[in-house]
Amino acid sequence: MIIDEDASMRETALSLLKAANIEAVAAADGEEALALSMRQWFPVLLTNRHIPVIDGIELVQRVRAIAIAPVYVIMLSADGTTTHEHEAGYCAGVDHYLPRHSLDAELIARVNTGFAAIRRRQSTATARGNGLMIIDLNSGAHTARHLIGRLHAEIALAARRRTPLTVISACIESDASPGGTLSGQTAASAALLTAVRGSIRAGLHWVARLPAVLNLYRLAIVLPESDAAEVMAVTQGIRNAFAPSQGAGASGAMQLSIGSVVLAHDGNAPTALELLGESERRRRGVGERTADEIQHVQSEAVRDTTEAQAGETAIRLE
């Protein structure tokens, strides 16, 4: 379903989809779109942020509340859309942002990606291996909204309770060429996940498998309620797992890089996107904090974690 008050935009999108043999309907405002959603299930929703009667963000929330099956939401973004606006959309249930000026070039590919994601969601629940929560953006089973929404909630919880929250960015670069065997690339990705699984606390800590780029395999590791000593132990555990496979001349060598960022309770909580971006910058060696600085920030953030944990459970991804 396409929702936009601009009639020419609706007609353009409908024509593109029809040419690709994809059936679609259109609505001019949020109220009409919601009424259509009550009558039937639309697996993919393409909506503008600013639409009459019911705003695009509210529409996404209400459609998800009544949908009888998973829905993949694409939101059109205009030039100048801010990071905060994107994050609000992800938290509301947006799966992907599509620049309005890229509609002609990217619409069909993005809609087909949405259909594929829906099929995966219908056949698999949130991945859990040995109790470990994994948000998998690489396979398409989950999207940015799952990662951003959950991390946003973790930030809010940590800020309210003034407990530590650390995000680690871990990346393994395999010697296998980008066009190398699938088994070699899969082995590199699995090796990184196995190393992480052996180092963190299942049931509290969780992992996001980020989209692979060429021969780089990346994870975002989220460690709520973990002090500096535990964060360092996790980091060292991952490094130790890869020590034998690194170094010049090693067969099938895998190069590991790690960076981390700690949420500071200074009254200016970062967005989820900012926290992820900072951990990635530090993985690349830009502005990395020393162990003493991490210890200092976390010691200020902790306020009787044991009492704060009582009666509360870890946030679960819905």
Rank of each mutant, 00 (worst) to 15 (best):
S15R: 11
P99S: 05
G56T: 04
L17S: 05
G56N: 08
R64T: 06
H50C: 01
E58Q: 13
G93D: 04
V25Y: 01
E85Y: 01
V25A: 06
A125H: 12
R64C: 10
G114V: 13
M75D: 03
D29M: 07
A27D: 00
T47F: 04
T47C: 10
E58N: 13
V44G: 08
L46W: 02
T124N: 13
C91H: 02
A33N: 08
P70Y: 15
V60R: 03
V44L: 06
S102T: 07
R62A: 06
M38V: 01
A19S: 14
I68H: 12
A24M: 05
I22D: 08
T113V: 10
M9N: 02
V94N: 05
L107H: 09
S102F: 12
A65N: 12
L16F: 03
L98E: 07
L46A: 06
T82S: 15
G114I: 04
A28F: 01
F42M: 08
D55S: 14
P52Y: 02
F42R: 11
N112I: 07
E87D: 02
L14Q: 08
H101E: 10
P99Y: 02
A109W: 04
H96G: 00
V53D: 10
H96Q: 14
T124C: 07
R10W: 03
H86W: 02
D29V: 02
S102Y: 03
G93Y: 12
I22Q: 10
L17V: 04
A109Y: 05
V44A: 05
E106C: 08
A19T: 14
N112S: 14
A26W: 00
A19C: 02
A35I: 06
T12N: 12
E11K: 12
I66E: 04
D29S: 04
R128S: 14
G30E: 08
R119G: 07
Q40I: 00
A88D: 11
T83Q: 13
V25P: 00
V60D: 09
G56M: 05
H84A: 15
E85T: 03
V63F: 01
R10Q: 09
S102P: 00
G93I: 04
G93W: 10
I108P: 08
T113F: 11
R62C: 02
V71Q: 06
D55V: 00
A92T: 07
L103Y: 08
G93A: 12
I118F: 13
R39N: 03
A20E: 14
R64K: 15
E106F: 12
F115I: 13
A28P: 01
L34C: 10
S37L: 09
E58P: 00
G89I: 07
Y90M: 05
E23D: 11
G80L: 05
H50Q: 09
L59A: 12
N112M: 11
